[in-house]
Design a protein around this nucleic acid. Structure first.
Lengths: 191, 191
DNA sequence: CGACACATGTAACACGTTACATGATTTG
DNA sequence: CAAATCATGTAACGTGTTACATGTGTCG
C-alpha cells in the first residue's frame, strides 16, 4: 500500500517514467527502503488497471511517462489528508516474538531480550552515523531523508526502552506473583 | 513471516489443532492483531509442505492436531535466538508519507502532521484505557498482553515525539535555509 | 427455533520479493 | 573493450486478506 501511494505522490509532482520513479523514491527516503524496479512496473500496471494513472506519451529521451488521472489526484489528496490508522497497527514481529516467548515454556527470555537490545543498539548507532552524512547539501530531499532517519532513531530508542521495561516487568513478575508459566519465564530474566 | 513463526512457537508448547491455534495466538496478544482463521489453515498446509509440521492424530474431541517436526523445532529455536533485523526495517507508511509530503510541492505538511498527531494521541489513549482492563487476573497471557500493549504505547509515544520534532525541524528550515521546495513545504508549518 | 461460537476448509485476490531476460548508453 | 548504469519488462513464488461454503454444537 505504501509503494502504491508513494508512486502516486511522485506523479502528483510531475509525470515520470518507471525507472525515474524508483530513483526519486529512493533519493527522497535516502535509500532507507530499497525499492525493486520490477515492482515499480507491476505497480504501475495495476494502477493503470485501477484507473489511477495513464500513459502520458514519451519525453525527449523516448521514456514512456505516466500521469495521474482524475481519480489518481483524488487518491493522493485523500492519502495526504487521512492519518495513518493505528487502530489496527501492523503486526510487530518483535512484540509478537516476546509475547510468545513469555507464554511458551522453555524459552530463555532474558537472553532473547539482551540479544535484541544489542542488535537495536547497533542499528541505532548506524542511524546516527548516517545522520552525519545526511546534512550539508541543503536540498529538499536531504531534509526528507533527515526526517526519515529521525523516525528510525526514535523508533529504535523506543524499542530499546521497551525492552528494558520488559526486563524490569518480568523481574518483578518473578519475585512478586508466582503463578505457573509467568514465573518460569521470568526466572530466566533474573539469572 | 510473523504468523508462520507464531504458529510454530505455539506448537512448540504442545500439539494443537487449527482453530485452537488462532485462539491461543489472539489470547496471548490480547486480540491486538486479529488472526483470520483461514490463514491458520493455509499456513499450516504450507508449513506441512515445507516439512516443519506434521499431523499428530486426533485429540479426544476428534480435532486433527499438528506437531512440530525436527526441522520445526530447529526453526523455532532459531527464531527465538535470532534478533529481529532492523538493518532493513519494514516500510513505515507514516515516515514515507511525510518524506514525500515534504518533497512534493503543494502538500500542506502542517495540517498533515497535526491530523496525524491527534490520531496518534487517540490511539495512545485507547491503549492506556485497555491497560486498565489488562491486569488483575494474573495469568501468563495477561503478562504477555500487558507487554504487547506497552510496546504499542512506547511506539505511539515515539511517533508523537517524532511528529513534534518534524514540526520544529520544518519551522527551522522555513526561517534559516531558503532553497526551493524545502521552504515552500516548511512555510505551511509556520502558518 | 434462531443466533452464535466452534470447526475446517477453499478460492480469489492484493502486495511484495527475487530472479531472469533483454537491450541501450555511459564510462574507465 | 569491459563493466556499470540506465531502462523496461516478465515469471514464479511467498505471504496475507477477504469472502464464501459447510457443518456441528450450545444456549437462550
Amino acid at each position: 500500500m505504501s509503494v502504491k501511494h508513494a508512486l502516486l505522490s511522485l506523479l502528483e509532482q510531475e509525470p515520470m517514467y518507471g525507472y525515474q520513479l524508483r530513483q526519486e523514491f529512493e533519493s527522497r527516503t535516502g535509500g532507507t527502503w530499497p525499492l525493486n524496479v520490477g515492482q515499480v512496473y507491476t505497480t504501475l500496471t495495476r494502477l493503470e488497471r485501477d484507473g489511477l494513472v495513464e500513459a502520458a506519451g514519451e519525453d525527449e529521451d523516448g521514456h514512456e511517462r505516466w500521469r495521474l488521472t482524475e481519480s489518481g489526484h483524488e487518491e493522493v489528496a485523500t492519502w495526504f489528508t487521512t492519518p495513518v490508522a493505528r487502530t489496527q497497527p501492523p503486526r510487530d514481529e518483535l512484540a509478537i516474538k516476546l509475547a510468545l516467548a513469555v507464554t511458551v515454556p522453555g524459552v530463555d527470555v532474558g537472553t532473547l531480550i539482551q540479544r535484541q537490545r544489542s542488535a537495536s543498539m547497533t542499528a541505532l548507532q548506524d542511524y546516527t552515523r548516517l545522520k552525519r552524512q545526511a546534512g550539508a547539501s541543503g536540498e529538499a530531499s536531504d531534509l526528507a531523508w533527515g526526517l526519515v532517519l529521525d523516525s528510525l532513531v526514535f523508533a529504535a530508542e523506543a524499542e530499546i526502552r521497551w525492552l528494558d521495561h520488559c526486563e524490569a516487568r518480568l523481574r518483578r513478575a518473578a519475585t512478586q506473583e508466582v503463578p505457573a508459566t509467568a514465573a518460569a519465564a521470568a526466572e530466566q530474566v533474573t539469572r
